[in-house]
Each structure stands twice: as structure tokens, then as C-alpha cells.
């Protein structure tokens, strides 16, 4: 299963990096989201994968069999914060598009409006 996760993480990172290298702002944004997914999976994998044994302490299994709760707590935070960033970036993009009339990042290199 590590192999499976490695493949997924590799694909997500590769796709995310490719997209943030684009000139279109929307693509960069999608790239960022893919990268966030990749990072979340990476944290989960680094904390070791445990199948079907969530950490509810009354379920009777001994401590070593549980999944590690710490990476999960970190990922939870990451998901929520990631959403905040996405929402803000998306609206910022909309705003910038309205003002600069372009989706092309190369056109937004200076602070002056091209009228």
C-alpha cells in the first residue's frame, strides 16, 4: 500500500507543480489545491498507514495497533486552512480579473493598470 500511496503522491505533486508553472491564474490555483492534497497524503503516509483502526480509545485494541492521531490532527488543520487560502485566492483572482481584465499572470507584472 505504500507503493500505491507513493504513486498517488507523486502524481499529485507532479500535476500540482506543472499547474503552478502556468500563466493562467485559475490553473495556478488548481495547482495549489492539488499540491495541498498531495501534502495531506504525504503527512498521512509519513505517520505510517494503518487500515481500519481509528483511534477511539474505548475500542479495546492496544495502543500500538491504532493509527497515529498526531498526523491526522495536523492534516485536519491543513485541510481547513487550505480551504481558507483557496477561498481567498479565488476571490482575489476574481477581483484582479475584474480590474486588470486578464487571466494572464505575465500581464500583471506591474502595479499600474494597462488602460
Amino acid at each position: 500500500m505504500n507503493l500505491l500511496f507513493a504513486v498517488m503522491i507523486g502524481v499529485l505533486y507532479g500535476a500540482g507543480f506543472y499547474l503552478i508553472l502556468r500563466r493562467s491564474f485559475v490553473k495556478v490555483l488548481i495547482g495549489l489545491i492539488l499540491l495541498a492534497h498531495g501534502a495531506n497524503l504525504l503527512i498521512l503516509t509519513v505517520g505510517r498507514l494503518t487500515k481500519g483502526n481509528p483511534v477511539f480509545v474505548n475500542s479495546g485494541t492496544d495502543a500500538t495497533a491504532f493509527a497515529d492521531p498526531l498526523p491526522q490532527a495536523l492534516i485536519l488543520t491543513a485541510i481547513v486552512i487550505g480551504f481558507g487560502i483557496q477561498a481567498f485566492a479565488l476571490v482575489l483572482f476574481k477581483r484582479a480579473y475584474k480590474t486588470a481584465k486578464t487571466d494572464d499572470l505575465d500581464e500583471m507584472r506591474n502595479t499600474d493598470l494597462s488602460s
Binding site: A6, G10, L12, F17, V46, G47, A63, P69, L70
Partner: peptide, 29 residues
């Protein structure tokens, strides 16, 4: 991007191969 993705792929495999002891896990549980 493929180079980066491929590196991540190997990185995950290598990390999974190392041993891990988490004292925090035991503490929290």
C-alpha cells in the same frame, strides 16, 4: 514537474522504509 513528482514518489518509498517510533502517539492515546 515529472522530475519533481518522481522524486516525491521515491521520497515516500524511502520514508516508509525507515523505522518510526512515536512517543507522542503513545502519550496522546
Amino acid at each position: 514537474a515529472s522530475f519533481a513528482g518522481l522524486t516525491m514518489f521515491f521520497l515516500v518509498l524511502v520514508i516508509s522504509g525507515t523505522s518510526l517510533t512515536s512517543e507522542l502517539k503513545e502519550y496522546f492515546i
